[in-house]
């Protein structure tokens, strides 16, 4: 069985970290922080919950294309920031 075309040749793994912009209230982070306090962990000043999206992409996918993926779908630019990190596949 041959792999689908997108997976042919060399590939790379891309990690996109999506986080809420500073200043945007994060109710989930707040709830996690309260739970940590409830478990007896002291000293947690703030918790922000984000999202990690891992992509396996062909190595000819450009940085500009990755950036567009983030802007058009993976992050909502009204409330979120994103960070792209390439790791060896």
């Amino acid at each position: 069985m041959s792999p689908p075309p997108a997976l042919k040749g060399s590939k790379m793994k891309v990690r996109v970290s999506v986080s809420l912009k500073p200043g945007v209230l994060d109710p989930q982070g707040r709830a996690i922080q309260h739970s940590l306090e409830g478990l007896g962990f002291a000293g947690v000043r703030d918790v922000r919950a984000g999202r990690l999206i891992e992509l396996d992409v062909a190595d000819d996918v450009t940085d500009a294309a990755l950036d567009d993926m983030c802007k058009q779908l993976l992050a909502n630019m009204v409330i979120e920031n994103y960070r792209i990190e390439k790791v060896a596949a």
Binding site: V24, L25, P27, Q28, R30, A31, N76, V78, I79
Partner: peptide
């Protein structure tokens, strides 16, 4: 509509969770 850009802003998780 907000995700499609037809209206400004975004709808986030309720503040009270």
């Amino acid at each position: 509509l907000t995700e499609a850009g037809l209206l400004p802003g975004a709808l986030m998780r309720n503040a009270g969770i």
